[in-house]
Design a protein around this nucleic acid. Sequence first.
DNA 1: TATGAATGAGTCTTCATTCAT
DNA 2: CATGAATGAAGACTCATTCAT
Lengths: 217, 217, 217, 217
Amino acid sequence: MNDARRHAPKGRPPAAQSADRRETILLCAVRLFADQGEAATTITQIAEAAGVTPAMIHYYFKSRAGLLDAVAQECILPIVKSVWEAADAGLGDPVEAVCAWAGRLLEAARRLPELPRLWAREFLAGSGALRDRVVPAAVPVQSHSRLIGAVARAQREGRMNPGIDPVLLMPTVIAMVMCPLAAQDILQKVPTVGSVDREALARHVRAFLLAGLASRQ
Amino acid sequence: MNDARRHAPKGRPPAAQSADRRETILLCAVRLFADQGEAATTITQIAEAAGVTPAMIHYYFKSRAGLLDAVAQECILPIVKSVWEAADAGLGDPVEAVCAWAGRLLEAARRLPELPRLWAREFLAGSGALRDRVVPAAVPVQSHSRLIGAVARAQREGRMNPGIDPVLLMPTVIAMVMCPLAAQDILQKVPTVGSVDREALARHVRAFLLAGLASRQ
Amino acid sequence: MNDARRHAPKGRPPAAQSADRRETILLCAVRLFADQGEAATTITQIAEAAGVTPAMIHYYFKSRAGLLDAVAQECILPIVKSVWEAADAGLGDPVEAVCAWAGRLLEAARRLPELPRLWAREFLAGSGALRDRVVPAAVPVQSHSRLIGAVARAQREGRMNPGIDPVLLMPTVIAMVMCPLAAQDILQKVPTVGSVDREALARHVRAFLLAGLASRQ
Amino acid sequence: MNDARRHAPKGRPPAAQSADRRETILLCAVRLFADQGEAATTITQIAEAAGVTPAMIHYYFKSRAGLLDAVAQECILPIVKSVWEAADAGLGDPVEAVCAWAGRLLEAARRLPELPRLWAREFLAGSGALRDRVVPAAVPVQSHSRLIGAVARAQREGRMNPGIDPVLLMPTVIAMVMCPLAAQDILQKVPTVGSVDREALARHVRAFLLAGLASRQ
DNA sequence: TATGAATGAGTCTTCATTCAT
DNA sequence: CATGAATGAAGACTCATTCAT
């Protein structure tokens, strides 16, 4: 039977198959969490979406909590953390730093299209099992504080719009990028809008930030 | 029923008591929905918070669906609709119109402090029993289209920042106002931030909008 | 409706009915635990035996653990503790004290016929959810130590069989009383035996103890 | 199979390895059954204790029932049956016959230390999958009846304590021997007791029986 | 008007068991 | 020989809902 395995000409080896199934389950879970919220999503729904039995999900993840752990650690946190990488670079020009940061947010949303909706439903406000696994590990307080400091300095030196509240800048930028993506299905119903074009959003945000953050004159 | 309450001769008038209890239940429901999400909130939790029995809630609202109807119709929609009132006025100066609109959003969040969190969790993205009762009735497609038109016209006439995407302006403004309020508990953990001051937010948003929407020069 | 209740001529009042049902559930649980062991008994089995739904059991006892708590606290411990009451009296004549103690064991088994089997299955040896709730609260180490001391003294003074190990006396007596009762269904299969007569057991144990504990001569 | 093992030329002979593993599984099963009861023990627990996979256990024993069969047939029944061997010898002096019988019980408990706890939990009372496999095959009704007859005769002839109930003698003796061993962990908590010494128990039981069964004077 | 009692449907979870490899 | 993967059946538990009182 070793031979049978060794000569098997095609078909993915069982290990890969199993890993794939795990991946599929995680992906379906993320999608359903983004659509309905984590609390409203049952293991059975995830199993159906992934084409497996509910018991299979316990086989891979031990429990619902284990699945949430895996979703947070493997699907969400790597993407979210990438947004903050290199966030400390280029603080000499805070406007450009913020624009770069917004660009990384957009890139994250491209890599994980469910991110904007997850962010809105699960992370932005309130409490929840998924939020507890993501938010504490995702907000780099130090980087944020450094940005706030750099903005305040630039304002004192007349290089930035003094009306901007440095403390509210970061949430404002996240909001500008994520909300239109999260609200796609609402915007699609507005006849003049249609689906949100990622390129158009990037241009819009950049134009808004450059004009809004620059010092007058 | 105001009359009934006014003329009630002695003791707590039963009608008023009943109306009060109904009010209390609705309020507690709104709070729990904002904190935990509608899907994660049980009738029993609402009953405990309101100091009544679960059966009482069915007595007043017939069913969970009935409670959601009442929350949407009586607590949320009146506030949300007020944001769009007079939205068509002053479209001659879209920048000022948008600023006024942002001001009405802030006022709505002052009257219903749970609104930003509800908006983030329940209305912005995805699906949900509460969302189905609020969003379709809350987005006035026509007003929105008129605003889009006015902005586009102002851009063609050189009166507004041409980099702004008229279609994305409205979601951007909602996001700027609501997200910092919804994310209060995250922001409070950033040491340099503390609680979000409504006045400061108003100034920040206005400064951002005036600078960001104005045409250069 | 108060009237309706007040004048209701027959039928047990609802409060009593509810308490009865609780009692019935506890009784059925004790019986099944004695027959099959606690670990092998499902909530559904108890519910069926009591003529209620499984959900009803959660309504009364919150959880399986809550049911076990109630069984231990309300059904078992009161009976078990009564065995040790007045155990310190009459230690001047340990033989008589032990006989009296055996009598209280028999009385306990009369009041709770499931006790011998519960004792054998759940309390005597090993581990188990029910045992953890009963044994620690049921063995009065001090009374036992005092008895051991009194026996040793009587042996030194020549008033008791010196071959008896004082430390093993108590387990021996419990065993002599409880095992024949616990093993009724085995003994019934021995043709010459039939069911164990409580009176006969009392006489047998007393005769055995009097002869076995007395000093020779 | 002994041959196969003996002549195996090199390495660990696979057959022996397999037989060892089987043995290990049975041993672990017996231990867990004694500790927790058969009903509370899962195949997975046994597999973990034995260092194999649950599937392995099915491979060796076909099913849970098969494992129970093997435990009963191979681990428990041989030991239990040895207690009754030669039980019919020496019935001329029932007191000595009973003492010898008690000695064989102690010997059985020495060879299978789990026996007292298994006896208490699984065999003494009630019902259970393991009990059904052991008890019917373990109680030799005829030998027991003969002992009962011999005791009654000795009582009529004035050679034994007439207060003893012949029918209850056998359960009494089993109880005296097994209970202190089964209850070791309770007795260890009594400060004056400590662990039960097998030698001391043997002397205690013999002294108790000799004095308790002898006719007065 | 108000509620304690009751329940069916559905959730998460565990377990013995099977099977392809 | 051995096991990782997979599952159906069953367990405890929760919840919205109903109803007699």
